[in-house]
């Protein structure tokens, strides 16, 4: 809807101060869009496609701008190959370049690194950081919370179509207010353990996690010994205890009650 591809079903939306419903054409002039599915014509070369898009956005010198963009995304050498011969990472970078031809105010990126190898993912991350540093607002939708943590100034967690948490990654993690101890227990032992842990000093809260019981506590390192003692006292013997600082995964878990596993909940920033 924000990209003007779908009609607004309800309410109001503004992009770069423009009412999307009232003036979608003005919104299109100010936004760049790189959707989850790489939208490239495989029969064209990288250069031809960029020159086409420069033309569509009325860029004064499409050839020069295309060279600039090809260099920017590291596709100078592949410029004259047809896109169908590109690897997944190259396609993703070219897709990003097509979204940047007119130096948009706002760049919408829908899961830009899905399906990429780690090296290509890092390249895209670097590119997103550079674009953002150059003054473009980046609206990133992702299922990778680490990606949101690394790239985003503000994060909103959407669950079932509703924003359930929003803020800077640091603020969201700070709201958790505690370290996380993942106590490796069988799920059938969780209730008993939960009851025993009420006596833990500095305890914030306890939730079920895939790997065991997630214990949110003020000082994780100091609490490990107490957790072991409390567990042993009720005859439980955790297989593992893992200490970590709260991550956006923990924020997500706290906000939605489950961990992200490529399902519907999304993070956007």
């Amino acid at each position: 809807m924000l990209c003007t591809l779908l009609p607004i079903s309800e309410g109001e939306a503004r992009v770069s101060g423009i009412d999307v419903r009232a003036d979608p054409a003005a919104v299109r002039r100010r936004i760049g869009v790189a959707l989850q599915e790489v939208g490239l014509d495989p029969t064209q070369t990288g250069r031809e496609l960029l020159e086409l898009h420069c033309g569509l956005y009325k860029i004064p010198d499409p050839a020069a701008r295309s060279v600039e963009l090809l260099h920017l995304v590291g596709l100078d050498e592949a410029a004259d190959r047809t896109i169908k011969a590109f690897s997944g990472g190259m396609k993703r970078r070219l897709d990003l370049a097509t979204a940047l031809v007119h130096e948009p105010d706002v760049l919408f990126l829908d899961e830009p690194t899905t399906g990429l190898d780690p090296a290509s993912r890092m390249t895209v991350w670097d590119e997103v950081r550079r674009i953002n540093a150059a003054g473009t607002t980046v609206f990133l939708t992702t299922q990778y919370l680490e990606e949101a943590d690394q790239l985003c100034g503000r994060v909103a967690i959407i669950d079932e179509g509703t924003i359930v948490a929003a803020g800077t990654p640091d603020a969201l993690k700070a709201e958790m207010g505690s370290d996380v101890l993942i106590v490796g227990l069988d799920r059938s032992q969780h209730d008993e353990a939960r009851a025993a842990l009420t006596a833990l000093r500095g305890l914030d809260h306890v939730t079920d996690a895939k790997e065991g019981l997630a214990v949110y506590v003020e000082d994780g390192a100091a609490a490990v010994a107490d957790v072991v003692r409390l567990m042993n006292a009720v005859g439980l013997h955790p297989a593992t205890i893992t200490l970590s600082r709260p991550s956006l995964d923990d924020v997500f878990l706290a906000a939605t009650g489950r961990r992200i596993e490529g399902g519907s909940p999304e993070a956007a920033a």
């Binding site: 990209c3 003007t4 591809l5 054409a25 299109r28 002039r29 936004i31 869009v33 959707l35 599915e37 790489v38 939208g39 490239l40 014509d41 495989p42 898009h53 569509l56 956005y57 097509t98």
Partner: peptide, 15 residues
Amino acid sequence: DIDIGYLDKLLAAPI
């Protein structure tokens, strides 16, 4: 074009 998502790209362009 619809299948590969390219039509969306064109529809999001100011043309």
